[in-house]
Design a protein around this nucleic acid. Sequence first.
DNA 1: AATTAGATATACATAATGTATAGTCAATCC
DNA 2: GGATTGACTATACATTATGTATATCTAATT
Lengths: 205, 205
Amino acid sequence: MPPRSYVSPARSAAAAETRERVIEAASRTLREGESIARFSLDTVAKAAGVTRLTVYNQFGSRRGLLEAVFDEIARHGGLHQLADAMAMADPRAALDRMVEIFCAFWSRDSAVARLHDAMATDPEFAEALRERNERRRRGVTALIDRIAGKGASPQTRKDAVDLIFALTSYPTFALLSTGRSRDEVCRLVQAACRAALAPLINPSS
Amino acid sequence: MPPRSYVSPARSAAAAETRERVIEAASRTLREGESIARFSLDTVAKAAGVTRLTVYNQFGSRRGLLEAVFDEIARHGGLHQLADAMAMADPRAALDRMVEIFCAFWSRDSAVARLHDAMATDPEFAEALRERNERRRRGVTALIDRIAGKGASPQTRKDAVDLIFALTSYPTFALLSTGRSRDEVCRLVQAACRAALAPLINPSS
DNA sequence: AATTAGATATACATAATGTATAGTCAATCC
DNA sequence: GGATTGACTATACATTATGTATATCTAATT
């Protein structure tokens, strides 16, 4: 006979709370730790005041926890502003705004640096993050299509998209951040992205 | 009484040979493995036909082995051509050539991808690789100084240097390599670098 | 009062790095 | 030729992580 099952408001609320506490502890550990190498589920569990097994119950694996942390950061990272940016009348202004939004996102929580490091050791996590980045690529593609003149070949468009995609990526942001404020990086990337648009209109190559 | 010590041509030659064999096995393992996570000294030692302890005797640690692999790749990676490139009369042509040399370098041995992944988990190894990249930065700086007009401010120069440094980095190369041949990536990066030079002469901002 | 979901306690399997100690064997020195 | 030395081996051990298994506890539901 099948065991009767039921949903419990109080229980699932408590579970959700511990889940959030674990995510918070994990992102704090990522922020404060100097390397992803030191990031262990044991440390996180202790910081959250739970057992390591609870982490497994909630997230399934280390990878699951890391994805949950990234999604939590993304939720509060200001990416919802992208909708407004994409709706702007001037696609170049929209691109500038897009760069601004992503610079703010990359610099908001230093845990994102460690999460990108985690891509190196966990291919499936890397794939998961890459999929989340595809949204950025789609946004860039849409803007390029609006900016490009009729004469722009598909290859020229693809080049512009991929170049701007690379310029707005986290690795580029991190490389440019040595000795630069967030705003300074933003202006530099904006200038580079504008320069990358040139081949789309000027048919001189 | 101090133990007498001596140098042994035959022994050090044999040691150098096993050292090379281990490096070769390590880079092969990195190339064939799908992730740095699977890269263990045990695997390398077996592939080289030696004991894991021999690896420790020769390289001290996992990090030491990885550095040795990178240096070996760099030695045969064509970076010596940089001297000729830097000696070119036209600094813009030199920059084009530089981009070419680095695109060839990044694409030559797929083990470099895994080595960059290793930066994520080993901060000291990351630092070691960063130092080796400083040579590229110095080269870019020298070219920018030759290209920049008198009116170019230090900040404008720094911006150009850092931007080109980022454009010629491995992460950028890897990001642009999806669906592009080495030469195509090279041309795209060259164009982006040329565009990054504009603020150096045109004082219109 | 019985049941159930979430969390705990404890143990175990596996894999990796790194250290320690003793032993093997051929090249070198006297 | 015999003692010594350097590279390598064999074996063992300590430590740290991830991930799985099993039994138990507790408070919320039925």
